[in-house]
């Protein structure tokens, strides 16, 4: 499989928004919204996504967007979908676009419950591995040892595996994706769009300021995350059927870690430990297929 750059034509996400130039989250929004199309209602909690979508009276998204509270995205999306359904407007997609903080942490209760109820919504987590909107504090998506402003000595615990947790809810669709693989990302959005019930996609979106990455490098860093095996691209249907969508090229994790200043304090031993952990995770994932 070749990496290609097919960008959907539908202009739902517009230029002129307030993201940092080169932001991975904004790029992801472009692929996601342009693939979902205009018959969509968006739900956005506080995050960089909210900044990108606003401010009043402007909108970078040519769809109705409801900005909700940080912990309520899944419940808010469910309310919209149910109210559309009782009015017979069943064809409208309802998509939550939430950060990792709004998903892995404070919004997890509502998310897990929406999954249990199999709400007919698409929930997309734009995972930049920290609370970037409030100045890059740690979330439970922040990886082991990464520097954040609330873990200046490096995060002492690892990244929560949200895809596995969501798969354990046995919902119709769980997938991982990232902006360095646009075809894979948009294919997953298209697939999710055709399905019914709860669909969850976690999209790794490098944050320039939060990760310490130059403006031009979000896509490269995203690809390295996949090709080192740090962030494998896979999907899980009904909690059972695992498919690895891209075989990592086996690039050493060191290559990825060195692209980001949040890891600059790492020792050789720590890097080796991360490598071992990634190897174990990849073996585990392959066995699940």
């Amino acid at each position: 499989m070749m990496i290609s750059y097919n960008i959907p034509e539908e202009k739902v996400f517009l230029s002129g928004h307030n993201a940092c130039p080169g932001c991975g989250e904004a790029l992801a929004l472009r692929y996601i919204l342009n693939t979902l199309g205009p018959e969509t209602v968006g739900v956005v909690p506080p995050s960089c996504i909210a900044i990108i979508s606003g401010p009043q009276p402007y909108s970078s998204m040519r769809i109705p967007v409801y900005q909700t509270t940080l912990e309520a995205s899944a419940a808010s999306a469910a309310g919209i979908k149910r109210a559309l359904d009782v009015q017979g407007k069943t064809q409208v997609n309802v998509v939550a676009l939430a950060g990792d903080g709004g998903t892995y942490d404070i919004g997890f209760q509502a998310l897990s419950a929406a999954a249990e109820r199999n709400e007919d919504i698409i929930y997309i987590c734009l995972d930049n591995e920290g609370y970037m909107n409030t100045g890059a504090q740690k979330s439970s998506a922040t990886p082991w040892l990464a520097y954040t402003t609330s873990t200046p000595g490096g995060k002492p615990t690892g990244k929560k595996n949200v895809a596995e947790i969501m798969a354990a809810h046995e919902i119709p669709y769980v997938a991982t994706a990232t902006v360095g693989f646009p075809d894979d990302l948009t294919a997953k959005i298209r697939k999710a769009k055709e399905m019914k019930g709860m669909r969850f996609i976690v999209v790794l979106t490098p944050c320039l300021a939060g990760w310490g990455v130059p403006d031009s490098q979000a896509v490269r860093v995203s690809r390295l995350a996949v090709d080192t095996g740090i962030f494998p691209l896979y999907e899980v249907e009904n909690g059972r059927k695992y498919t690895l969508n891209w075989e990592p090229r086996g690039i050493p994790v060191d290559t990825y870690l060195r692209t980001q200043s949040r890891y600059k304090h790492l020792t050789a031993d720590q890097i080796e430990e991360i490598q071992q952990e990634v190897n174990r995770n990849m073996t585990y994932l392959r066995e699940k297929q």
């Binding site: 205009p38 018959e39 969509t40 209602v41 956005v44 909210a50 900044i51 979508s53 606003g54 401010p55 009043q56 009276p57 909108s59 040519r62 769809i63 109705p64 967007v65 409801y66 900005q67 909700t68 919209i80 559309l84 407007k89 409208v92």
Partner: peptide, 12 residues
């Protein structure tokens, strides 16, 4: 909230 209308709510 309806794509046929296009209005949003909650923006900064």
């Amino acid at each position: 909230l309806d794509p046929a209308i296009g209005e949003s709510w909650g923006n900064v």
